[in-house]
Every structure is written in structure tokens, then in C-alpha cells.
């Protein structure tokens, strides 16, 4: 039997697909523009394909060491922050998810408090300065090394594991560290996957701390490099437009800008469809509660 579609279904599908295209097309257009010559861009700005793709913008970007350094910095930050953050958060989450013990409630509340109240930009800046971390990638690694939000997600996961596991291991003479490492961590693989992805995305998108603490542009992470290219190029757009030899020039500001956007966005774009379910898993672990 064939499913019957009503007029309502058709309208619904049309609207949802239209909204999907509206989200998709701007990204697609950016990718197209990154391959377009100025002449082609002027001819058909609402393009669906590129008839004569050029790689000038990419050559320009990749010959510039900025992006190389950007990737290097971002990956360095990732290398340190990702494993450390996940480990610290899991350890804390495990301890706080056990039966109450001396000071555990106070420590829990003091931890959750930092999620809602912080020193603010300037005190944090001065603290980084006083630690001598200015202009060092360590500053970006350290800020955000421990996310209370992620810790609570893990804690909620641990709550879901029956206490009998812990008790029987204790009877066998295992201590808390062994129970944590050998029983609870293997069980927590799904939530660890989710938290690792959240952390990896956060590191990939990091620019604010780096902008405040790192003045040496050779150490800038990817996003900050991109930010500079975008804001510098915007100021040259209008000059390009007024020029007489507009059409003759092969590359143009947007071309290079979009190539930079694509180079920064590509890893997430390629990985996202495959890991989407882990991200969504993180949301269904339960509402965030202290």
C-alpha cells in the first residue's frame, strides 16, 4: 500500500526543505566564490556551479605561512587541552557522583558556582599576566581546561550506573581509583566520546582568549588568522569595486576571504555528518543540573 500524502504534508516538506536550502546555500556559495575568478563572479553571483574554477586564492593562502602556523597552534592547543580536560572532568565527575562524604557537597556547590559567576575579562587577563603566560599558547590551553558543564554531563552519566558495581568491586578489595579507571571509565565511553567532541569543537573555534593573550601572530590559532583575513579584506572591497581594471584582476577580496573560510571550516564539515549522533547524545544525557 502506498502512503498517502495530504496537501499539508506537501506544504510542510516544501517549507522545511526551503529552510534547509536557505541554510545550505550560503555555505555552498562561499565555497563556489572561493573557486571563482572575478570575471565569473561578476557575471553570475547567484551561481550553482563554477564553470572555470581557479585555485589562485588557495595558492595565495597556502603559500602564506599564516595558515600553516594557525593549524599548528590550533592542533597544539588540542593536543594538550583535549585529553587533560576530559580526564580532569571525568575524575571530578566520578568523585562527586559517589555517596556524600566529608566536604563533597561544599566542593560540588563551589564548583557549580563558577559556572554562574566568574572574575570577568580583566581580572582573568591580569591573572594570566601574573602567571607569566602572556603570549604563550599555554594561556589558551589553561583557560577552559575544566568545564563545569561537561563535568555535570559526565556526572549525570555516572549516576545512571548501578551502585552494586562499585560495591562488589570494593568487596574484592579494589580502591576508588581502580574502580574509576577499570570499571567506570570503560563504561563511560559514549559520554567520553560526546565530551571529547564538544571539547574538540570548542578548541577548533577558539579565538577570544587567543585574541586577548597572544600578541605574536605566528602563534595565533586558526580562527584568529581567519578573523584577521576577513576584517582586513573587508576594507579593501570597496577599492576593488571602484577600480577600472576590475574585471582584469583574477582574484578579489571575497575570493581569498572565502578560501580562508573554507580552509577553516572544512574539517568540521567533513567530520560532522559522521559524528552528529554523539553530539545529540550529549543533549539527551539529561538536563544540566548541579
Amino acid at each position: 500500500m502506498k502512503k498517502k500524502y495530504t496537501v499539508g504534508d506537501i506544504v510542510l516538506v516544501t517549507i522545511l526543505v526551503a529552510w534547509g536550502l536557505l541554510i545550505f546555500y550560503p555555505f555552498y556559495n562561499s565555497i563556489l566564490v572561493s573557486f571563482m575568478s572575478q570575471a565569473e563572479y561578476m557575471r553570475k553571483p547567484f551561481a550553482l556551479w563554477v564553470s572555470k574554477p581557479i585555485l589562485v586564492a588557495y595558492e595565495e593562502i597556502l603559500s602564506d605561512s599564516k595558515f600553516f602556523y594557525g593549524y599548528k597552534s590550533t592542533l597544539t592547543i588540542m593536543l594538550f587541552r583535549l585529553p587533560l580536560a576530559v580526564l580532569i572532568e571525568c575524575m571530578m565527575a566520578y568523585a562527586l557522583s559517589r555517596k556524600p562524604f566529608f566536604m563533597s557537597k561544599i566542593i560540588n556547590n563551589m564548583t557549580v558556582f563558577t559556572m554562574y559567576f566568574g572574575g570577568g575579562t580583566i581580572p582573568t587577563y591580569l591573572m594570566i599576566k601574573s602567571y607569566g603566560l602572556m603570549n604563550s599558547l599555554a594561556s589558551v590551553v589553561v583557560i577552559g581546561l575544566f568545564s563545569v558543564y561537561n563535568m555535570i554531563l559526565i556526572k549525570n552519566f555516572f549516576y545512571g550506573i548501578p551502585d552494586s558495581l562499585e560495591e562488589s568491586a570494593k568487596l574484592d578489595g579494589a580502591n576508588d581509583i581502580r574502580i574509576f579507571a577499570q570499571i567506570y571509565m570503560p563504561l563511560a565511553k559514549p559520554i567520553i566520546a560526546t565530551i571529547s567532541l564538544f571539547t574538540a569543537v570548542a578548541v577548533w573555534n577558539e579565538w577570544y582568549s587567543a585574541m586577548l593573550y597572544i600578541s605574536d601572530s605566528d602563534k595565533w590559532p586558526l580562527q584568529l588568522v581567519l578573523r584577521e583575513i576577513i576584517s582586513n579584506a573587508t576594507s579593501t572591497v570597496k577599492e576593488d569595486l571602484s577600480g577600472e581594471d576590475l574585471m582584469l584582476k583574477e582574484t578579489f577580496a571575497l575570493n581569498v576571504q572565502m578560501a580562508a573560510v573554507v580552509v577553516t571550516m572544512l574539517p568540521i564539515m567533513l567530520v560532522y555528518p559522521f559524528v552528529q549522533k554523539y553530539f545529540m547524545g550529549g543533549l539527551t544525557v539529561g538536563a544540566v543540573k548541579g
Partner: peptide, 23 residues
């Protein structure tokens, strides 16, 4: 051992979160 597991996070909270609040 539970305190030991909490130690890194507590060091972070004291040295970063609460240290920043002092400012």
C-alpha cells in the same frame, strides 16, 4: 582516593576560577 581524583579539578578551581575572582 576520591579526594585524589578531585585534586586536579580543585587545583584548577583555586588557581584559575577563584584566583580570577580575587581580581
Amino acid at each position: 582516593y576520591l579526594y585524589l581524583l578531585m585534586l586536579p579539578a580543585i587545583i584548577y578551581l583555586v588557581m584559575i576560577s577563584y584566583r580570577a575572582m580575587y581580581g
